[in-house]
């Protein structure tokens, strides 16, 4: 079967009397010829990598290579332990964890792309926080990853999970929807409720542009992961409470695709428009690449020449394919 529509997954899950996560497991086994145990074992290893990144980024401040960001996962983790936060500390923990993983990613550390590296904080953020709540077993969290995978497959196949193609709504938005749906199944919700959680979470992410400062996966990526972890949890709670997404989730996914296509190129991962184009965004770009270019000038390679090329925006003045070689 192909994962293209959520309503089909919901129908099939109901027909077979299984959760969406279990359906994903069955389909994965059918399509790959691997046993369910093998698939679960591999998924458990992905979860371990996620947890390692969470611990790494909260235990100590992780600084990114550019020096623009870093240490916020650790900072939030220390803050929530004081117990004075507006948001309940158990909830805020998901934010701290999501920030931590995103910082590990930006620091060229090891993470699991869920669905992408830029949005890799959200799912581990909410799931490791759920693990630490003591209410769920590790195996249940691994099953929740399969729920998230099924949702992500639908979005990837019928819309996009690439910031360059669909803006940040396609990355952080998809991750938020995946996390919301995963939490619904973790809590014992129905396949329909998973669908509504996806619809609700995505609706709150539509239109989100991809505007990384300096083209680096740091600003605004890291804080978006932290904040969208909360969005995911709230969307899950809303769906579990019986709130419905009036626009059916598949239509929300379809419109995500439409909006992505309508976004100007400057707001799709080119590091030109949006926050990247603010005075501070531009100054940071200058600072980071000025430093790095200076460092490279000491190096012996041909790449040096490429790095000294003037940056050209938007396709004018670049060399063309025919005269490239």
């Amino acid at each position: 079967m192909a994962f293209t529509h959520l309503h089909e997954l919901i129908r099939m899950a109901n027909e077979r009397g299984v959760t969406i996560g279990q359906l994903m497991l069955e389909v994965e086994a059918e399509q790959t010829g691997r046993t369910k145990e093998e698939i679960l074992a591999r998924m458990a290893r992905q979860f371990d990598v996620m947890e390692e990144a969470v611990r790494k980024g909260t235990r100590e401040p992780v600084m990114t290579r550019s020096g623009i960001t870093g240490g916020d996962g650790h900072r939030m983790h220390a803050y929530l332990q004081r117990g004075q936060s507006f948001v309940h500390p158990d909830t805020l923990r998901a934010t701290a964890y999501a920030l931590a993983v995103s910082e590990v990613n930006a620091g060229m550390g090891r993470i699991v792309a869920t669905p992408t590296a830029g949005s890799a904080g959200i799912l581990p953020g909410v799931l490791v926080a759920a693990l630490d709540s003591g209410r769920y077993r590790r195996e249940e969290l691994v099953m929740a990853l399969l729920t998230a995978a099924a949702i992500g497959l639908v979005i990837a196949n019928s819309a996009s999970i690439s910031g360059a193609a669909g803006g940040c709504q396609a990355e952080v938005g998809s991750a938020t929807a995946m996390a919301a749906g995963a939490l619904v199944e973790l809590a014992g919700g129905t396949p329909e409720q998973v669908g509504h959680a996806v619809g609700l979470a995505l609706k709150n992410s539509l239109g989100l542009v991809c505007d990384p400062v300096g083209g680096l996966v740091e600003v605004p990526c890291i804080v978006r992961n932290g904040l969208h972890a909360i969005t995911a949890m709230t969307a899950a709670d809303m769906a579990l409470a019986g709130v419905r997404s009036v626009i059916p989730p598949d239509e929300v996914i379809a419109v995500l695709h439409e909006i992505g296509k309508d976004m100007p190129v400057s707001l799709r991962e080119t590091g030109i428009g949006g926050l990247a184009g603010t005075p501070t965004g531009k100054a940071l770009r200058e600072k980071v690449f000025g430093d790095r270019a200076a460092r490279r000038n000491a190096g012996p390679t041909l790449a040096e020449a490429a790095c000294r090329e003037p940056a050209v925006a938007g396709g004018t003045g670049e060399s063309h394919r025919g005269d490239a070689s």
Partner: peptide, 24 residues
């Protein structure tokens, strides 16, 4: 279908910072 496996979405395990720009 471009994406078929659960591990296309929950994966790859990679070194950051960008799945399109680094892992890809």
């Amino acid at each position: 279908m471009k994406y078929q496996s659960a591990f296309d979405i929950i994966g790859p395990v990679m070194v950051g910072p960008s799945s399109s720009h680094t892992a890809g």
